[in-house]
Every structure is written in structure tokens, then in C-alpha cells.
């Protein structure tokens, strides 16, 4: 990680008196897969459009790979790929012709473009249908073609806006793998979605947007602790025999704030990861430790909590 790819300061956008994005501060670094979440109308797409220089911000500053998209839109568009939510292609052209047009608009030399397009079509699994008119392709295929389309210019940063909506489970799997593949090749990915378990699977970090504000941001486990457990770690320890002495002993440990007895296991809240110390204590007190688990947070729970 390291280099900053996206940096916004107090970015705001007002449409006819309605504030779509309100003082947004984003910081995304190279190589991340950033999950950009939020309910419909929270301002995700507007933010992306501003980052691309397609819409003018009302106030605030943006840096995308060191460029200001408002002043140097062409520089930004040369290195940024954008897959819109309702992506469309020229239905009368074949998949390959559509990509060739994109390559031409990006001023790629013909020979190089041909080779890259063939490679990309096989990467996204469309080699078989590359010479068919786009109108004959399924929704999932079109979406994969969309991924190939933004890949043609070999971008440093890609925005995927709801890339998995309306696609069958297999298609979703393909898109997620392709997204991970892009990140592996060094692209920074901003992934907008409502499908929280998909985001949780591939994203390294998430930001949750509500009414134009970033209400939560960070890595998923950290976010979960913040949002759900009030910043605490929750450890569940299954022990052979639960007795008061053990509970008291754990309570006396530094960092432990609460111990709950739930029959055959103990629920321990603490302000750092004390699994090692707790397991040692249990074993040394001649008890048997049958299992231990640190609570993981589902993005869904975090999302609901943050937005409520």
C-alpha cells in the first residue's frame, strides 16, 4: 500500500437545493478494493461522477492520482475506468467492435489494441461470443464485457457501480473473481454495491455513505467492533466447568470489562485481543478449554447498526 489514489476534502454537491453529497472526506490508497456502500440515493454515484470529472462539485477539493478531475478531466479519464450501473453497448456492433471503439477513443495503436482485446475477451470468458452482436448477449455477459471495456485502457483506478445487480449467482461469482483479479494486477478498485456479503468477501476496506455523509469507514472487523461492540473485542470461551472462581479470575485480568456466564461458555468483553492470556488462565486453573472464538462481525450487522 502507500500511494494515495483518491483524496477528497469536504466534497459537496448540491442539485437544485438538494444536497446529494455533504462534506465528504475520502482517502483511498493504491491497491485497495474499497467497498462503497450506502442506501439508494445516498450519493455514491454522484461522488463517483465527481471523481471522474463528469459532474462539477459544488465545493471541496478532489485529487485523483494527483490530478484534479474538475480541471484536468482528460488526464483523469485516461487512467480511470468507470463501469456505470446501467452500462450499455452499441447493440448492433459485436462485442469485439465495441471494445475496439473504446480502444480507438483511448488512442491505442491498432495492433496493440487487437492483442489486448483478444486477451481481455478470454480473461472475461467471452472469447466464444466475441463476434456476436451485443444484442444477443445475456445480462451477465454484458456486465463482463463492461469489465473488459474498462480494462482496455489499462486503468490505475476503476469504479464499479453496482456491477452485480440483476445477475445470476454464477455471473456474480465471475464478476467478483474478475474484480479481485484486477486488484491483483495493481488496480485500485472502488466497488459500489448493496450486496453486503459480496463486499465483505472481496473488499479490504469499506466506507458507508448515508445522506451524503460518510458514516463509517475502515476495515470490516474494526468497523464491527466500533459499531456493534462499542469498540470492544468479544470472546466466547467454551470451558469444561463454569464456576465463579474462574469468572472472578478472568474479571481480574487487565483489560477485561465484563464476563457473562451463559451456561457452558463464558462471554468475555475486553478492550484488546486477550485470547492468549485467557486461554492460558483457563488451562492453568485446571479447567478444560473446549473452544474459543472471537466474535466476527458481519457487514450486514454493521450496516444496519450504522444506518439506524
Amino acid at each position: 500500500m502507500g500511494q494515495v489514489v483518491i483524496e477528497t476534502k469536504d466534497l459537496s454537491k448540491t442539485y437544485d437545493g438538494f444536497t446529494a453529497v455533504d462534506k465528504l472526506n475520502l482517502h483511498i490508497e493504491e491497491g485497495e478494493i474499497f467497498g462503497f456502500l450506502g442506501p439508494n440515493g445516498a450519493g455514491k454515484t454522484t461522488t463517483i461522477l465527481m471523481l471522474l470529472g463528469l459532474t462539477e462539485p459544488s465545493s471541496g477539493t478532489i485529487q485523483v492520482c494527483g490530478y484534479n478531475p474538475d480541471r484536468e478531466p482528460l488526464e483523469v479519464k485516461r487512467i480511470v475506468g468507470y463501469l456505470p450501473e446501467k452500462v450499455g453497448f452499441y447493440e448492433d456492433l459485436t462485442a469485439r467492435q465495441n471494445l475496439e471503439y473504446t480502444a480507438e477513443l483511448n488512442n491505442l495503436p491498432r495492433g496493440e489494441a487487437q492483442e489486448r482485446i483478444s486477451n481481455l475477451l478470454s480473461t472475461v470468458g467471452l472469447s466464444q461470443v466475441s463476434d456476436q452482436e451485443v444484442r444477443k448477449l445475456s445480462r451477465g455477459m454484458k456486465q463482463r464485457l463492461g469489465i473488459a471495456d474498462i480494462w482496455v485502457k489499462d486503468p490505475k483506478l476503476v469504479f464499479l457501480d453496482e456491477p452485480t445487480s440483476g445477475i445470476d449467482p454464477e455471473g456474480i461469482e465471475d464478476i467478483l473473481n474478475l474484480t479481485a483479479n484486477m486488484a491483483k494486477r495493481g488496480m485500485t478498485v472502488v466497488f459500489c454495491s448493496h450486496q453486503l456479503h459480496q463486499v465483505q468477501r472481496i473488499c479490504t476496506r469499506v466506507g458507508i455513505l448515508a445522506k451524503g455523509h460518510l458514516v463509517a469507514e475502515g476495515q470490516i472487523d474494526g468497523l464491527g467492533r466500533q459499531a456493534i461492540a462499542g469498540g470492544r473485542y468479544r470472546i466466547e470461551a467454551q470451558v469444561g466447568q463454569v464456576h465463579q472462581e474462574l469468572i472472578d479470575a478472568i474479571k481480574r485480568m487487565g483489560g477485561v470489562t465484563e464476563v457473562q456466564d451463559s451456561g457452558d461458555s463464558l462471554l468475555i468483553s475486553c478492550n484488546k485481543d486477550l485470547r492468549k492470556q485467557i486461554s492460558k488462565l483457563i488451562v492453568e486453573s485446571d479447567n478444560s478449554l473446549l473452544g474459543m472464538r472471537i466474535e466476527e462481525y458481519s457487514l450486514e450487522a454493521i450496516y444496519k447498526k450504522v444506518l439506524s
Partner: peptide
């Protein structure tokens, strides 16, 4: 309406 415009506009062209 065909969804090509935003794709087209995100290419490096004036």
C-alpha cells in the same frame, strides 16, 4: 437511453 453515454463520457475525449 442505451447507457452508452456515460461510458463514452468516461473516455479521454473532449
Amino acid at each position: 437511453t442505451s447507457g452508452n453515454l456515460s461510458r463514452l463520457l468516461s473516455q479521454p475525449i473532449y
